[in-house]
Amino acid sequence: MEISDLFAAIRKENKEQLQVLLSKNPSWVNETDARGSTPLLLATYYGLEEISAEILKHPQNIDAQDASGNTALMGVCFKGFATIAKMLMKHGANVNVTNFNGATALIYAATFNRIEIIKMLLAHGADKHIKDDRGNTALDHAKLQGLSEVITTLEE
């Protein structure tokens, strides 16, 4: 058994194999693949709810960052996976982590018009005032795109 088997099980959505591999090798939950993704980052990026839930049963750095500095929460905000976003926040994901460009989960959610996720992030303490490396807040990104519902939500 190798760590690559764990990442293959995630990609194949093989929950049983995932359970076996993590029970025998619990530290693998914090390992990374060639792209810098942990098992949680990979599962959440692909929107795999059951696999993500299984991985979250194991102690880990829920705010681990990939090669671009993105966390699992940032990825689901970009992709629009609200159920997984809720799951990550319930497990203590830090909503204010910034990636290597200074972006936060809220900035991604605003940029990609993910209103349901924006509301969840704000309820979990997302800081609307954080600016990315270009000096833009989540509200600035929404205004640049004319996203009226996002603008209204962020101005409340």
Results as ranks from 00 to 15, higher is better:
2 E>R: 12
3 I>R: 15
3 I>W: 09
4 S>V: 14
4 S>W: 15
4 S>I: 14
6 L>V: 12
7 F>W: 14
7 F>P: 12
9 A>P: 11
10 I>Q: 07
12 K>C: 08
15 K>F: 07
17 Q>S: 12
17 Q>W: 08
19 Q>N: 11
22 L>H: 13
23 S>E: 15
23 S>K: 11
24 K>G: 13
24 K>V: 12
29 V>P: 08
29 V>G: 10
31 E>S: 15
31 E>R: 10
33 D>E: 15
33 D>H: 11
34 A>V: 15
35 R>S: 11
36 G>R: 14
37 S>N: 15
38 T>C: 05
39 P>E: 07
40 L>I: 06
40 L>M: 03
41 L>M: 13
44 T>Q: 12
46 Y>R: 07
47 G>A: 10
48 L>M: 15
50 E>I: 00
51 I>F: 06
51 I>V: 14
51 I>A: 03
56 L>T: 05
57 K>D: 03
58 H>C: 12
59 P>G: 14
59 P>W: 07
60 Q>H: 06
61 N>T: 12
62 I>T: 01
63 D>G: 08
65 Q>W: 06
65 Q>M: 15
69 G>S: 10
72 A>Q: 10
74 M>G: 00
75 G>S: 10
76 V>P: 04
77 C>D: 02
77 C>V: 02
82 A>N: 01
84 I>Y: 05
86 K>F: 00
88 L>M: 02
88 L>Q: 02
92 G>M: 06
93 A>D: 01
93 A>H: 01
93 A>S: 10
97 V>P: 10
98 T>H: 01
100 F>L: 06
101 N>A: 08
101 N>M: 03
102 G>P: 01
104 T>W: 03
104 T>D: 00
105 A>V: 04
105 A>T: 04
105 A>F: 06
106 L>W: 00
107 I>M: 04
109 A>W: 01
110 A>N: 00
110 A>F: 01
110 A>Y: 07
114 R>E: 02
115 I>N: 03
116 E>Y: 12
116 E>P: 09
116 E>W: 05
117 I>Y: 13
119 K>H: 10
120 M>Y: 07
121 L>I: 02
121 L>F: 02
125 G>E: 01
128 K>E: 03
130 I>V: 12
132 D>Q: 03
132 D>F: 00
133 D>G: 01
133 D>T: 05
136 N>Q: 14
137 T>R: 06
137 T>Y: 04
140 D>N: 13
140 D>P: 06
141 H>W: 13
142 A>N: 09
144 L>P: 09
145 Q>P: 00
145 Q>T: 06
146 G>C: 07
146 G>Y: 12
147 L>Q: 13
148 S>C: 09
148 S>F: 03
149 E>M: 00
151 I>G: 00
151 I>Q: 01
152 T>Q: 01
